[in-house]
């Protein structure tokens, strides 16, 4: 006991000396974030398209853009942001113990997570679903033909469980070949170690584009699971949840209203549309409930663009994008048959 307490005191003393640690009293998340002067936004270890580092050491991706949008809403400056990369074992703990203010990483919104882990999942920013990729010369065109196949899958995620469920349901007798790292999984598949790979379809498309000959491979039409990827916050701080939720809605709404990063200034000064004026803060007082400036939505669009622009930049056809077409997918606007729908901002 003595040893432990001495040790703890020692470590704590050293730690305080080192870091000039800060004590914060119980406040709302918004107050904490404002007092600290930056937003701590949690992502995972890099994942192409969603959050990854470029060769200059900067973070980019669709989930990083959500972090930037919230930072812009709170501070009017998207650089007041600390991106934390946290391993998936620690992700929910780091949010629960106050290390992170916001979790914006490809986390699937499930009931057990939403209700049991002390988290609140908000509006999804990407709808994914699990699929298969096979070699074209295998002649397989449907997942139901995968009888007795060896399928490569990364371990420790819902992907593996979904595969087992799918195999059992359809009596396919699929054998799982599991991997820790998706690179090794893909290499094994390319060298003939398994007949198919299963993962989220966005990841499959991104990885396929970087196979030696992408045309030799085919993503099967079946979708095994629903994967709504959504930002999450700590349970219980409703104002903060509103800020993050409406930041994402602002992105979607802006696309619907035709507001882009380039024309946002024009729209605010010249638009006659009351919806545009209300959202951009030229009219009304939509900001009061959030505890933010009148300019909050304007700042978001000015900093990162609307949802469509973000999608194009990181997922769609942009320079830094993984190349998944949006048309006809769940990620299209509701007016185009997708699920991206924002409640009215009025």
């Amino acid at each position: 006991m003595k040893l432990k307490s001495t040790l703890m005191t020692m470590t704590a003393t050293v730690a305080i000396l080192f870091s000039g640690a800060t004590f914060a009293t119980a406040e709302t998340t918004l107050e904490t974030v404002k007092a600290r002067g930056n937003l701590r936004c949690q992502v995972g270890s890099p994942s192409p398209g969603f959050y990854n580092l470029d060769s200059a050491g900067a973070w980019y991706g669709i989930d990083v853009a959500i972090c930037e949008a919230v930072a812009a809403a709170v501070f009017g400056d998207k650089t007041k942001l600390e991106i934390q990369s946290v391993s998936s074992q620690q992700r929910f703990t780091a949010l629960a113990n106050g290390d992170s203010d916001l979790l914006s990483r490809t986390a699937t919104w499930t009931m057990s997570r939403d209700t049991q882990l002390g988290l609140d999942f908000l509006q999804p920013n990407f709808y994914d679903g699990q699929g298969f990729i096979v070699r074209k010369d295998s002649g397989i065109t449907s997942a139901l033909q995968l009888k007795g196949a060896k399928v490569c899958v990364t371990t420790g995620t819902t992907t593996e469980l979904n595969l087992t469920d799918f195999s059992r349901l359809n009596e396919l007798n699929i054998s799982n070949v599991t991997f820790e790292d998706f690179n090794v999984r893909d290499d094994t598949y390319l060298n003939g170690g398994c007949d198919a790979v299963t993962a989220d379809k966005s990841a499959l498309a991104g990885n396929k584009a970087n196979f030696p000959i992408p045309g030799d491979h085919l993503i099967l039409p079946e979708t095994l699971s629903k994967e709504p990827l959504a930002p999450a916050v700590r349970h219980g701080d409703n104002q903060w949840a509103d800020i993050v939720r409406w930041s994402v809605y602002a992105l979607i709404n802006a696309e619907e209203l035709g507001i882009t990063q380039a024309n946002v200034d024009d729209m605010r000064s010249t638009s006659k549309d009351p919806n545009v004026l209300r959202m951009l803060g030229a009219e009304g007082d939509l900001n009061t409930g959030l505890g933010l400036d009148k300019d909050w939505a304007y700042n978001i669009i000015k900093a990162v663009g609307n949802y469509g622009e973000i999608y194009e930049a990181y997922i769609g056809g942009g320079e830094q994008a993984i190349g998944i077409s949006r048309a006809g997918s769940l990620n299209a606007l509701w007016t185009d048959g997708g699920l991206m729908y924002s409640p009215p901002m009025r």
Binding site: S45, N52, D54
Partner: peptide, 14 residues
């Protein structure tokens, strides 16, 4: 390990 996750170099891990 992050190199293989950067979009221009996806999958480059060896």
């Amino acid at each position: 390990r992050s190199i293989s996750k950067d979009v221009p170099w996806v999958g480059l891990h060896k």
